[in-house]
């Protein structure tokens, strides 16, 4: 008698396309045969928006799949939180029927988040509307933030560079170091990007970080392809105005003289 495992690829593809991301992950864990079938067929989870918020003791990750705001299992919206706790990491899954918690002993919360990010985004092929990373910053824990940045960003960079480029229309990052953006943006698909938003979370100068230079950013194909650019709460250093002429609309703080030029040139 036929069963799920005996279904031809064309049927399996059709079935997998009807499942929500958590259900595909669950099915992947039932047996090796199905895991291999799923990994061969690479069902696209069709994430529409991915929002990652990083703080000193947690990472909050929200995933939208449609324009509804009902949370899984009632709807499709998924929210996960990776908390740094004593002796490990606590993963919280916010659900319509309450929250589920899991404690992972001796695991680093950034590491656990990165593993989840990698697994859940592996098969993402369709174009996202938004890909957002918000890196909080508070002056009084300056050292702590530098440490987190140095642990998280190279990991995300290696995940993103190890796959075909994620497609997103809007890319937004809140950071306190320019270099964080260069660990992410170059690995997104330059062809789909329409809008880039960069916000400085420092809200004022911090001694050993200094003003931003965007030379490297300007060399990216993403910079050339995007139509809109917002650089918010940042004082950018030495920007040749003509480098902005490719955009339909920009918002940026530069030296005062240049700002006037930009306004004049771009109206």
């Amino acid at each position: 008698m036929p069963s799920l495992i005996q279904m031809p690829d064309v049927v399996m593809t059709e079935i997998l396309a009807k499942l929500d991301l958590p259900d595909v992950q669950s099915l992947r864990k039932t047996c090796w045969d199905l895991r291999n079938i799923i990994d061969d067929l690479k069902p696209d989870p069709r994430v529409l928006r991915s929002v990652i918020i990083v703080d000193t003791d947690f990472v909050d990750w929200k995933l939208n799949f449609d324009n509804g705001y009902y949370i899984y299992p009632e709807g499709k919206f998924i929210r996960l939180q990776y908390n740094k706790v004593e002796n490990g990491c606590q993963v919280v899954w916010y659900r319509s029927d309450g929250r589920r918690e899991k404690f992972l002993e001796n695991r680093d919360y950034l590491e656990v988040f990165c593993e989840d990010f990698k697994v859940n985004m592996t098969f993402q092929q369709s174009e996202m509307e938004n890909f957002i990373i918000n890196f909080e910053y508070f002056k009084f824990v300056h050292e702590k933030f530098l440490e987190i940045e140095s642990q998280l960003m190279p990991r995300l960079q290696s995940i993103l560079s190890g796959r075909n480029p994620l497609k997103t229309i809007n890319f937004s990052m809140v950071v306190f170091k320019m270099s964080s953006i260069l660990k992410i943006l170059p690995y997104l698909d330059a062809r789909t990007i329409k809008r880039i938003t960069i916000t400085d979370s420092k809200q004022g100068p911090v001694p050993d970080i200094g003003k931003w230079r965007i030379d490297e950013l300007m060399e990216l194909a993403h910079w050339k392809n995007a139509e809109e650019l917002d650089i918010i709460d940042v004082f950018v250093e030495d920007v040749p105005v003509e480098r902005f002429l490719g955009f339909k609309r920009i918002y940026i703080f530069v030296e005062e003289v240049n700002m006037e030029q930009v306004l004049e040139w771009k109206e």
């Binding site: 799920l4 049927v11 059709e14 079935i15 396309a17 009807k18 499942l19 929500d20 958590p22 259900d23 669950s26 099915l27 864990k29 039932t30 899984y72 299992p73």
Partner: peptide, 14 residues
């Protein structure tokens, strides 16, 4: 048919 099969998987453990 695939919808019916898929619906059975909603929020189920392995």
């Amino acid at each position: 048919c695939c919808r019916v099969i898929g619906d059975m998987a909603k929020d189920k453990t392995p």
